[in-house]
Structure formats: C-alpha cells, structure tokens
Nucleic acid binder design. Structure first.
Lengths: 139, 139
DNA sequence: GTGTTTGCAAAGTGTTTGCAATTTA
DNA sequence: TAAATTGCAAACACTTTGCAAACAC
C-alpha cells in the first residue's frame, strides 16, 4: 500500500493558517505546493485543476488564491497590468519577467542587493521592496 | 501681451516623435508636461482634461497615452494589477508606492543601486530593471 | 483631397460579488 | 445544527476595437 496519509501535511498546514481543509482547498494546495516553486495566474490554476479532474469554479480559484495570500502561504507578484500572478515562494526574492511571453521566474533572494534606498515619505514605512528585471527575447 | 507662441515647444516635440499635433494631443501634452513630473492613470487624465475644459473621449486618452509611450515621452509603471499608471519621467529611476492610497512617487534614479543581478536566462536580454518600494501608512 | 485622428458605443478581459445550495465540524 | 464554503451567473472596472464623421496637412 502506498503512503497512508498522503495529505496529512497539507491538511495540517491549512489548519495552521486558519483555513478549513475543504476538498477544493486541499486539491489546489497540492497542485501549488507539491513540487517546485511556481508562478500561477487564476486562469492557469483553474485549467490545471480541471485537467487534473478537480471540479472547482473559477470563483473559488480566486477566493482560494486570495485566502492563501492573506494566510501568507502565497504571495502576489505585480508585473503585468492585465494579469495577477501568484508565487508559491514567499521568501524574500525578486523576479525575471519576459513581457513577450508572460514568463515569470524567480531570482534567488540573496543574489540581488538593493542599496541606498532613501527614507520613505513622512508617515509611511516600507513593507516590501520588489525588483523586476524585465527581459526580451534576444533578437 | 503674454507669450506669443505658448505651445510652440509642445508642437515641435510632438512632430519630432512623429505625432500630428492635434488639438487633443496638444492639450494632453500640456497637461502632462507643463510643470513637474507626474504619474497619471487614464481616468485621472480624462477627468483633469474635462475639468480644464478640454473635450476628449476616454478612448482618445488611452490612445494618446499609448502613442506617447511608444514615442518614448511617457513610460508605463506597473505597480497595481488594476490600474495602469503613466510616468512623465522617462529617465532611469524607481518608485515608492503606497498601496493603501494608490500614491506613486519617484525615487531619483541615482540614489537606488541594484547590484548582483545574475545573468538573464539563455536567449534573453535585460530591457529594464524596476524597483518598487511598497509602503504603508505608519500605524 | 488624402490619410490621420477622433469619439462613440459595443465588445473584451480579468476579477469580484450576491445568494442559494452544499459541506465541514 | 450552526457556521463556513462553494458555484453559478450577474455585475464590475478597466481597456480595446470598429467604424463613420471630423480634422490636419
């Protein structure tokens, strides 16, 4: 017999962040977190789920992505004004983005260094520094 | 009498970048480029134009913003997945962004330094490096 | 005059919402 | 059973497009 409680870790993880481990959330969490870090849009995750035989509505995909983001197990990446990308890597890191193809790729966090950021405007504080290295196919 | 050819510079500038200096383009260019650098959305520029008594449709605002961007006299800034911001400052520089209020502000280019960017993926080259310093009101 | 630009209204995207039916605990 | 979650369809916000009328040269 194969592993007895294959989803136990995922279930616990969802519980830990205060989300009921429903069938949909479990299935989506498995797609997102089993394996390497990934970057997905709602549409991508939806069709992937359908292909995998998971019955989920697009509305639930959006809800889930936002719930996961609020819970801190996903992070939103703003690179394209028309699409919202979500990143399963929530550590500090930055991105390569190929505008032509919509391809998003991590740059490991330790490599890029941002220095000499001036003090933020009065009454505000820094929540995050995002570096986006925009790329084009070499002609 | 006040300045005799107040728009002459703007007319020339549009001609230089290959755009006919139509009434609408001229008026929008004046709103955008007379004065300090600014960050606008289509909606902001549209209502500003109407307030200033300039009759322009929203469709023309969008067309014009994109034409100006293609012509290199505007630059698009991606910070918010729901809104497209345009920046009249086309020099190399980065941004402060207050998510709560949608406020976008330049960081002078020379101050921020980004180092140790790894080589981009095979077959691509860097077009631009964007740094977005996200802020929140200090509670 | 000829080609460009404009404005309208309609169509398109991607995303969010209201609410009844379902599921979880 | 009580509270949370889901799915659908309708509503949304922002942006783009098609095409006839208006304009620049």
């Amino acid at each position: 017999m194969e592993g007895a409680r294959p989803f136990a870790g995922t279930i616990e993880r969802l519980r830990e962040v205060g989300l009921r481990p429903t069938r949909q959330r479990l299935a989506l969490a498995r797609l997102l977190f089993d394996g390497a870090d990934r970057h997905v849009t709602a549409e991508m995750l939806h069709s992937e789920a359908l292909t995998a035989g998971i019955k989920v509505s697009l509305a639930t995909i959006y809800n889930t992505l936002h719930q996961f983001t609020r819970a801190g197990i996903l992070r939103q990446v703003v690179v394209d004004p028309t699409r919202a990308y979500f990143d399963t890597n929530t550590d500090e890191h930055h991105h390569f983005f190929v505008e032509a193809s919509g391809t998003l790729e991590d740059i490991p966090g330790e490599r890029v260094r941002v220095t000499d950021i001036p003090a933020p405007p009065e009454g505000t504080e820094i929540t995050r520094v995002d570096v986006i290295v925009r790329l084009k196919p070499r002609g």
